[in-house]
Write a protein that binds this DNA or RNA. Structure first.
Length: 217
DNA sequence: CGTGTTTGACCAGCGC
DNA sequence: GCGCTGGTCAAACACG
C-alpha cells in the first residue's frame, strides 16, 4: 500500500515540542492550496475545548480524511480523500466535524466501497491511549511495514457503535503518537456530553471535550 | 466470573 | 496468478 509512504508528507513541518497552546495544525488537503482556511477555522473551533487535553498532550498536528472527492490520491491508501472541515460546524461554534454535506462531489466514483470519515492526529505523549471519553476495546495489534512500532486497533465498545481507531507511534519520532479515528459515534459518551454537539444536518454527534466543566482539576 | 487484552491465523485488496 | 501487506477474527489468557 502507498499509505505508509504518504503519511510522512503530512509531517513535514512539525510543531515545536511544548507548543501545544499554539497547536500548529497542518491539514492535508489532497494537494489543494486552500488548506489554511480550513485549518484556521478548525483550530478556532477546537481550541476552547482542547485546553484540558493540551495540558496532558502536545497535540501537534491534525490530519483529516473524509469520504470526499473519490478517486483523488489521498492521505490514506484506500482512495478516500482528505480533509473536510465543516463550515457549519465552525460557524456553529463548536465541534470537530467531517462534513457529510460537503461531500457533494464524492460519492459516485467509487460506490462499491463504503467510505467512512477518518480523522487522524498526532500527539506528543508518553502514553498511547488518549482518554477521549469513550470506551475502547482493543481487537488487534499489527506490526506494519516501514515502521518499527506496532499498530494497535481499537473499537468503540458501545453496543451498536462501530467506530474504530488505530494508534501507533510515529516512526520518525517515537515520542509522538499517531491516532486515527474512523467513523462517527452514534452516541454521546457520558464524559463528553458537556462538550459534545450534534450536527443539525446529519444528526451525528461530534466530540469536542472530555471532561465536565467541574472536573478539570 | 465477567471483562478486556494478547496474539497467531485468516482474509481481502493491491501491485507486480 | 502470486506474494505482500493491512485489517479483522477468535481462542486463550490475565486481571479485578
Amino acid at each position: 500500500m502507498a499509505a505508509v509512504g504518504a503519511l510522512p508528507v503530512l509531517y513535514h513541518h512539525p510543531a515545536p515540542a511544548g507548543d501545544a497552546a499554539s497547536m500548529s495544525s497542518y491539514f492535508s488537503h489532497g494537494g489543494s492550496s486552500t488548506t489554511s482556511s480550513s485549518a484556521s477555522s478548525f483550530s478556532a473551533a477546537l481550541a476552547p475545548t482542547t485546553t484540558a487535553l493540551a495540558e496532558q498532550f502536545d497535540i501537534s498536528e491534525f490530519l483529516f480524511d473524509d469520504a470526499r472527492a473519490a478517486g483523488a490520491p489521498g492521505v490514506f491508501a484506500d482512495g478516500a480523500a482528505p480533509v473536510v472541515v465543516s463550515d457549519a460546524a465552525a460557524a456553529g461554534g463548536g465541534a470537530i466535524s467531517a462534513a457529510a454535506g460537503s461531500a457533494a462531489a464524492a460519492a459516485e466514483a467509487v460506490p462499491e466501497r463504503p467510505r467512512t470519515e477518518r480523522i487522524a492526529f498526532r500527539t506528543r505523549s508518553e502514553i498511547e491511549i488518549l482518554d477521549d471519553g469513550y470506551k475502547w476495546r482493543k481487537y488487534g495489534k499489527k506490526s506494519v511495514k516501514n515502521s518499527p512500532n506496532p499498530r494497535n486497533y481499537y473499537r468503540c465498545s458501545t453496543e451498536g457503535c462501530n467506530v474504530k481507531k488505530r494508534v501507533e507511534r510515529d516512526k520518525d519520532d517515537p515520542s509522538y503518537v499517531v491516532t486515527t479515528y474512523e467513523g462517527t459515534h452514534n452516541h454521546v459518551s457520558p464524559s463528553t456530553v458537556y462538550y459534545a454537539s450534534q450536527d443539525a444536518a446529519s444528526g451525528r454527534f461530534f466530540v469536542a471535550g472530555t471532561q465536565p466543566p467541574g472536573s478539570l482539576n
